[in-house]
Design a binder for these strands. Structure first.
Lengths: 255, 255
DNA sequence: TGCACTAGCCTGTATATACAACCTCGGGAA
DNA sequence: TTCCCGAGGTTGTATATACAGGCTAGTGCA
């Protein structure tokens, strides 16, 4: 019966998502229990369980053992922005990525880097400053500190072929990261390195990377405000149902 | 056997995550098949299936029917930034949120709003401009357009008690959204509304919201660069294993 | 009236079994 | 030699069954 090739647990999920998105089921409403779904749709309890469990994992519903399943409260839903690898982002736009190294040396930690990496001020760190170019237009100034113990051979890499962040995640996958994004005016040196106009602001991304519970790298990424933007598309997961998605063109100002 | 109260599928997941994070299993390596896990750990195939399936959903591994399970390639992992509701963000910091309405009227669509909402220029739209205050300090200028058909009663809401975005998501949950973040200099009016210094840049978030496959609202959110930042913490999902997480303080510049 | 306890529902997990679809690889036929 | 096809391994789904543990409401006792 029913549609061919669409698994029953998925049909069940879409049925419930549809009832939520049309407003038939409202936040905090009770969702049919596993046994009620068994009776009303004829699936086995394990199949109903899988449908409801996945809806729970995806944030559509909240389940409480012994009580029931309820439509989640969406008002706190926070959307997300992607922070991609700069080289991937550039090649995604069909342009060429290259990098100019400005500085590559072992330097003592300044106050900010020391705090971020949980080391003492003046502790030795590996420092790399380079400008990422998109088809020969500077698009990002990366100023990065790395804990020497984590990747002693960091500065010896050929950063024409691999970005610093890609190299670090190849040293240890499954890193945690913390990002902060803000708008700020660049200093003289940054403005010149990025070929920026007077009075043009920077989009600054600060990233601290953790591996095995320890901070291992700290980076400040400066982007010209007129040539760079972060974008992100959020869609509720698992909903093949309705929702034609908006085309997600990687817009970029030409300048 | 083993630890009490930790489900076996979860123990299996953590076992495999540990093997990945220590480097014993490297990206593209083959992960033991379900039947191999059955033989080596004594669980049933359904339990092994659940462990591997969830690792697949969480992005740790890639599964191919008929072939096997392989450690995922993490180098393309894109991190995410959260864009929260401004009122939630403020109350999360323990401050008070209030809002000053600057404009509330039906206006014809300008070129940008018309393009974003897929309507003709000069089509009637509901427009709301308001300043969000954090303990009486202006923190966000929201300039929003809403499709009248979607929420005809939009302008009649009391936006002291509910933010425009929270109201819209109560009209229809499960919205899709597209965000763009950039740095730009404010115009005169914006700078005054937000009490900004001369030469201070704005962090500008542009958000288009979709419901049922149709764009329904378009907003530009201007934030003073010196008083606002976006932050996000990324941790690989499901890994209770190691990884002490960095404390995620909601930092904010004072001034 | 007030309280303790239990019956009954709910989710969470674990297993054995079954079948379908897919892919790879090697053996056998042309 | 080359091509086809099938055997065997792998994932994907579906079901029936079982037991544990949490929560609630209502019964019945004090």
């Amino acid at each position: 019966m029913t549609a061919a090739a669409i698994p029953r647990y998925r049909q069940l999920k879409e049925l419930i998502i549809r009832r939520i998105s049309t407003g038939e089921l409202r936040p905090r409403d009770r969702v049919p229990s596993e046994n009620e779904l068994v009776d009303s749709t004829g699936v086995s309890r394990m199949t109903a369980n899988r449908a409801l469990r996945e809806l729970n994992d995806e944030g559509y519903v909240d389940r409480v053992a012994g009580v029931g399943t309820f439509v989640a409260d969406f008002k706190a839903a926070s959307h997300v922005l992607e922070v991609r690898n700069i080289a991937d982002e550039i090649s995604l736009r069909g342009h060429d990525h290259s990098a100019n190294i400005l500085l590559s040396s072992e330097t003592p930690a300044d106050a900010i880097a020391a705090a971020a990496l949980h080391v003492n001020i003046n502790a030795p760190l590996l420092r790399l400053r380079l400008v990422h170019m998109e088809s020969d237009i500077p698009i990002q100034l990366e100023d990065r500190f790395v804990l020497p113990e984590f990747a002693p051979e960091f500065l010896q890499q050929n950063f024409a072929g691999i970005t610093p962040s890609a190299f670090l995640s190849s040293v240890s996958p499954l890193q945690e990261a913390e990002h902060v994004v803000r708008a700020a005016m660049p200093d003289e040196e940054t403005r010149n390195s990025l070929n920026m106009e007077d009075n043009e602001p920077c989009l600054v991304v600060t990233r601290t990377t953790w591996a095995h519970g320890q901070p291992v790298s700290f980076a400040r990424l400066y982007h010209p405000g007129s040539r760079f933007e972060l974008s992100g598309h959020y869609a509720p997961p698992g909903a093949e149902a309705a929702s034609r998605r908006p085309e997600h063109g990687a817009r970029q100002n030409e300048s």
